[in-house]
Design a protein around this nucleic acid. Sequence first.
DNA 1: GCCAACGTTGGC
DNA 2: GCCAACGTTGGC
Length: 153
Amino acid sequence: MKYWLLKSEPDCFSIDDLAKAKRQTTFWDGVRNYQARNFMRDEMKLGDQAFFYHSSCDEPAIMGLCEIVREAYPDHTAFDPKNDHYDPKSKQADPTWMMVDIRLTKPFTKPLTLEQLKAIPALKEMELLRRGSRLSVQPVTKPQFEAILKLAK
DNA sequence: GCCAACGTTGGC
DNA sequence: GCCAACGTTGGC
């Protein structure tokens, strides 16, 4: 099993939105970065665990834990000219962009803020904390995953 | 709102 | 294939 971190801007889609969704499940659309797509397409498997992270907001933080409930399939929002994430280069017959489905399994009552994460020695090498890191879908190592889960409530 | 870091685009 | 220009991300 692998571990992941997924970024979302809460103004766009927050963990509360996910909590309110049917079966606490959503498709993770809008990823338009090749490295992030490759992680989703090639490495994300059913049952993998993923942290839900709020970015570009007052208090960036890991908000909860999710599970991958469907493996990669074409991101249909790329085909829709009216969608913000429309990409004319992605064709139905040969989709460029993929998405997965995730289900919220454990919203944290006390999210771990970015500030707190930075203070945890076990997370020194974490991708999220790397200077200039922008990857919206990123792998988390098992020790990192466990360190975070131990502190999150 | 600023700006550093990074990815993408396009001319050559 | 190089690289400058540009756009985006995301913390502050």
